[in-house]
């Protein structure tokens, strides 16, 4: 930015800062590549391997469709349950974290808790739950519930903090009990946004539920991981195509629903 003063005299002030920055980035990239043991020989070998890998993926093999369907259904169930639980828990959490309706000694710890739920990757949470609860869908549901809480409780809290307090004041002045104040003065102001958040979370839980199986937390991910380990790359391809189709479908459906709600 120091170049700005010089630019008044010179038509093209050389922006040394930006050039140095780019150079530093390039040097870093080379340095990091050597640190990570990335070199041309390895890449070249990789590209050859990649070609063979792709060749083995096609044509996709759908002969074990029962296994595929079973895994996909379990992923769907995990996503549905985790979303429902996450949303249900997030409603009070979001309210408790909203600084305009909760006293600070409730809002601050709740915010910290929500931030903690969000900060660990859901796959890491899934591993911990697999170790604690055993293999299977239960661990997946638990992990994705935690992840959902981290995201939508925060969004809920932000939506609640943005409401107008005037109706709240009016309904309080009419002598309404606390729950009625929430139902009549708060909920109508946030309801449509909440539904949007919930759809978004369902969508992302669906994506994530296809994955938690990689660490043994149920769903199609386990089947996928097993297929990778057994080098069944044509089955891998079939699973990946199914997952992409499902995610694409979910995106279209939730897009439609959101458009209809508006």
């Amino acid at each position: 930015m120091s170049g700005a003063a010089a630019a008044a005299r010179q038509a093209f002030a050389p922006n040394w800062g930006a050039r140095l920055g780019l150079l530093a980035l390039a040097v870093y990239a080379v340095f990091a590549a050597t640190q990570l043991d990335l070199n041309w020989a390895r890449l070249a070998a990789g590209f050859g391997e990649g070609g063979r890998f792709l060749a083995r993926m096609f044509p996709p093999n759908f002969t074990r469709w029962e296994l595929l369907l079973e895994g996909m259904l379990e992923s769907l169930q995990i996503a549905a349950l985790a979303s429902a639980l996450g949303i249900l828990i997030s409603l009070p959490l979001g309210l408790m974290a909203a600084r305009n309706l909760s006293p600070w000694f409730i809002a601050v710890p709740t915010r910290a808790f929500i931030a903690l739920c969000r900060s660990l990757h859901y796959v890491i949470v899934a591993i911990l739950f697999v170790k604690a609860l055993g293999f299977g869908a239960l661990a997946g549901v638990a992990a994705l519930t935690i992840a959902s809480m981290g995201f939508i409780a925060k969004l809920f809290a932000e939506a609640i903090e943005e409401i107008s307090m005037k109706p709240v004041e009016a309904v309080r002045a009419a002598g309404a009990p606390g729950a009625s104040v929430l139902l009549y003065a708060v909920l109508p102001q946030v309801a449509s946004r909440f539904v949007g958040f919930c759809l978004y979370q369902l969508d992302s839980n669906l994506r994530n539920s296809t994955l938690v199986g990689i660490v043994g937390a149920g769903g199609i991910g386990g089947t996928l991981f097993a297929a990778f380990k057994r080098f069944d790359y044509d089955f891998v391809c079939a699973i990946l195509l199914t997952i992409i189709a499902l995610i694409f479908l979910a995106e279209v459906v939730s897009g439609r629903v959101r458009a209809a709600l508006r």
Binding site: S164, K166, P167, E169, A170, Y184, P188, Q189
Partner: peptide
């Protein structure tokens, strides 16, 4: 109230 304080979305 001065600014009515209705619940606008109801």
């Amino acid at each position: 109230f001065q600014e009515y304080n209705l619940v606008e979305r109801l």
